[in-house]
């Protein structure tokens, strides 16, 4: 819904930007002390699953993020299983036995550098993708991938969509909920903000549909908000305690592929 309402703004900006010019500028930005960033996913299957722990850097630094090593990372579920993760690479921790089962609530505990961070996430039931389709944009003849799927009735559902083109993953954030389509077929058209990557006939597109819980949805919804047009950009609402950046997501995952006709 949000997307729909923002179309006019996008269109007008498009019109304006025809005459506009862009250039890279240098701005002196404030610096911040490094913040811990935790990213963990559990899917509805056997593991192993990974938790990544890194630090943020200043804007002017290169995109190399220092790993946080030596942390004690644990994932437990409501059935009483508890899995202490092992650090495989610096900052990369993996599970050994815990399984992802829809309906379970998973709790992540991270002890790092004298601080404790916790998060929990409940894995929803999976939702299958009905169809992957392609649609032309209003302007510029860009091809957008879209999916449809049937929303399970009578419960609040939240979805995250990811896709890859010829096995190259796209990192943009796409989330939606069933607030406006409770129990109906949801069609979701993915409009990439980065217009440099254009789909063409013959491209193989894979779309993943994650059924996520409300806390994870809030994280990605607010993360998707940042950008040039918001008057008050802010950090996304994390489901991890103690001021850590990032998220912990227990989700059911379904995928489907299609070739651009």
């Amino acid at each position: 819904m949000r997307k729909i309402v923002f179309i006019p703004i996008t269109l007008i900006l498009l019109f304006c930007l025809v005459t506009a010019c862009k250039k890279v500028i240098h701005i002196d930005l404030n610096t911040a002390s490094p913040k811990i960033v935790i990213e963990g996913n559990i899917y509805d299957r056997a593991g192993p699953f990974a938790v990544k722990i890194f630090k943020s850097v200043n804007f002017d630094a290169s995109n190399v993020y220092p790993p946080v090593s030596g942390a004690i990372v644990k994932i437990s579920d409501t059935s009483g299983y508890s899995d202490v993760l092992t650090e495989k690479l610096p900052g990369l921790y993996v599970t050994s036995f815990i399984m992802g089962i829809p309906g379970e609530t998973y709790t992540l505990t991270v002890n790092a550098e004298g601080q404790t961070y916790t998060a929990s996430s409940t894995m929803p039931e999976p939702v299958d993708i009905g169809k992957v389709y392609f649609q032309n944009s209003f302007f510029g003849n860009t091809i957008y991938p879209g999916v449809n799927f049937v929303d399970p009735p009578n419960i609040n559902n939240y979805y995250r969509l990811l896709y890859s083109v010829n096995n190259a993953p796209n990192s943009e954030i796409n989330v939606t909920d069933d607030r406006l389509s409770e129990g109906k077929t949801i069609t979701y058209l993915i409009r990439p903000a980065d217009t440099d990557v254009k789909l063409k006939a013959g491209d193989n597109v894979t779309v993943w549909l994650e059924s996520i819980d409300q806390g994870v949805y809030e994280y990605f919804r607010t993360a998707g908000r940042e950008g040039g047009q918001s008057a008050s950009p802010a950090n996304p609402t994390s489901n991890i305690s103690n001021g850590a950046l990032g998220y912990f997501n227990a989700c059911s995952l379904r995928a489907r592929s299609a070739i651009v006709p």
Binding site: I27, L29, N30, T31, A32, P34, K35, V37, E39, F54, K55, S56, V57, N58, F59, A61, N63, Y65, A223, P233, L245, G246, Y247
Partner: peptide, 8 residues
């Protein structure tokens, strides 16, 4: 404006 960056 941002004060830092990280990767997700």
């Amino acid at each position: 404006f941002p004060s830092g960056k990280y990767n997700i």
